[in-house]
Amino acid sequence: MAVTKSEVIPIRTEHDIVVARQAVRRLSVEAAFGLVDQTKMVTAASELARNTFIYGGGGTLQCESLLEGARRGLRLTFTDQGPGIADLSLAMKDGWTSGSGMGLGLSGAKRLVNEFEIESVHGQGTRVTITRWK
């Protein structure tokens, strides 16, 4: 698997969520995703960027364009140095929220992509990696 392109977007303000969405849209188009796949990836990115901003106190989004054989994909990594998630399995549940959201951020984003990984250390931060293949 080769990374053909990589860029990092800071997520510091609410407006950066919009910037992240637009970058993911552009890269999804470049990876020749269909319209539905583009929309799923952008929506997942929006949910996770908001989590990074609100719960993680800001962080970064790393976008990587992937090539594996003839298959193209897009991998997004959201990293923050926030408080971390105390109970991961609870946080992945539909409808559970520690804030004021609908509790669909993590579980919903997971359903929209092919691969989903989450690492969180209490008190040190959270990293979520999602990948979608064409």
Partner: peptide, 12 residues
């Protein structure tokens, strides 16, 4: 359509 499909998949 793409928005509707995504929204359903998201769980809304």
């Amino acid at each position: 359509p793409a928005v509707a499909i995504t929204l359903v998949e998201l769980g809304l």
